[in-house]
Simulated assay, not measured.
Amino acid sequence: MLLIEIDKTRYRRHFNIVMGACISFLLLGSLGIAQLLIAVFPAAEGTHFHWNLLGVIVTALIILVVFKSKRQHPFLVEVVYVLELKKALNLITRKVRKLQSAAKMGDPNALLALQFSYSGSRQLWLLDDNTITLASLDKSQAELEQLLAKYDISIDITKYNSNLLKSF
């Protein structure tokens, strides 16, 4: 995955619209489907919990199918990019201890994965206005730069691929 610059204002606006649409559709769709099922299959007594649950599940599946089919739409470019970035960072986070140990030994793939993680996290945190944790990220980045200098390794973040993580 490549890190790309995205417009924060556009991302936030599109993300809010997508979330609002999903929440609204989930609310209206699940209630509508549940009410339709209750009308078609009435029960003399009970809470109709199963029909309400089925309404939520069906509506969530419809949202998922629509989102997957429209993910290439220009309106969703930033939203999909951030979701993919979060997914890539999560893969690294699961192996961060092994990566840090290997980085201390000078493993170039571990150093590359950590550099991608720090750069991606910085971008993500700035997009989400999560600036409180940037100080810890700066500290980790400085430690990484010391390791790069110690082992005289130059890394190109555009070469990062999640397949590098399989060896850790």
Score class of each variant (00 low, 15 high):
Val77Lys: 15
Val79Ile: 09
Ser136His: 11
Val96Asn: 04
Asp152Ser: 14
Ile6Pro: 04
Ala110Gln: 01
Ile92Cys: 00
Leu54Tyr: 04
Leu54Gly: 06
Lys87Val: 00
Leu164His: 02
Leu99Lys: 01
Arg71Gln: 12
His14Glu: 10
Gln141Gly: 02
His14Val: 12
Leu54Thr: 11
His48Trp: 04
Thr133Ile: 12
Lys98Ile: 00
Ser140Leu: 09
Tyr81Val: 02
Asn161Phe: 01
Leu54Pro: 08
Gln146Tyr: 08
Thr133Asn: 13
Asp107Gly: 00
Met105Gly: 07
Lys150Asp: 14
Ala110His: 00
Thr93Leu: 07
Gly55Thr: 06
Phe49Gln: 10
Gly106Lys: 10
Arg12Ile: 13
Arg71Tyr: 12
Leu76Val: 08
Leu61Glu: 10
Ala113Arg: 01
Ala135Asn: 15
Leu147Glu: 14
Leu27Glu: 03
Asp129Arg: 03
Leu64Lys: 11
Leu164Glu: 01
His14Trp: 05
Met19Cys: 08
Ser117Glu: 07
Ile155Asp: 04
Ser69Asp: 13
Ala142Arg: 09
Gln123Glu: 06
Leu85Thr: 00
Ser119Ala: 15
Leu144Ser: 01
Phe168Met: 05
Arg122Phe: 05
Asn52Phe: 15
Leu2Gln: 14
Ile23His: 03
Cys22Lys: 13
Leu144Lys: 00
Leu165Ile: 01
His48Phe: 15
Ser121Cys: 04
Arg12Tyr: 12
Phe49His: 05
Lys86Leu: 08
Thr133Gly: 15
Thr47Met: 15
Asn161Gln: 06
Ala21Pro: 07
Gln100Asp: 14
Val77Ile: 14
Pro108Met: 02
Phe168Asn: 03
Leu2Thr: 05
Lys166Asp: 05
Gly20Ile: 11
Leu28Lys: 07
Val58Tyr: 08
Ile38His: 02
Phe15Met: 12
Trp125Cys: 14
Thr158Ala: 10
Leu28Cys: 13
Thr9Gln: 15
Tyr81Gly: 00
Phe41Met: 13
Val18Asn: 14
Tyr118Ile: 06
Leu2Asp: 01
Ser30Thr: 02
Asn130Gly: 04
Ser154Thr: 13
Ile57Pro: 04
Ile153Glu: 06
Gln72Lys: 13
Lys166Arg: 09
Ser121Met: 05
Val58Leu: 15
Thr93Cys: 08
Thr158Arg: 15
Lys104Met: 13
Leu148Ile: 05
Leu53Trp: 14
Tyr118Ser: 07
Ala102Lys: 08
Ile92Val: 05
Thr131Phe: 06
Asp138Glu: 12
Leu3Pro: 05
Ser167Phe: 06
Tyr81His: 02
Leu64Glu: 12
Ala110Ile: 00
Pro74Asn: 04
Ile38Tyr: 03
Glu78Ala: 13
Ile157Tyr: 02
Leu89Ser: 00
Gln123Thr: 04
Ala39Lys: 09
Thr131Trp: 11
Gln72His: 15
Leu144Ala: 03
Ile157Asp: 00
Leu85Lys: 00
Leu144Cys: 03
Ser30Asp: 00
Ala44Leu: 12
Phe49Ala: 12
Val80Leu: 02
Ala110Lys: 01
Leu61His: 07
Leu3Thr: 05
Phe75Cys: 06
Pro74Gln: 07
Ala102Val: 05
Cys22Asp: 10
Leu2Cys: 03
Ser24Asp: 06
Asp129Phe: 11
Asp7Ile: 09
Leu89Met: 02
Pro42Leu: 06
Glu78Asp: 11
Thr59Val: 10
Arg71His: 15
Leu27Ala: 14
Ala43Trp: 10
Ala103Glu: 06
Ile62Asn: 03
Leu144Arg: 00
Thr158Leu: 09
Ile132Thr: 14
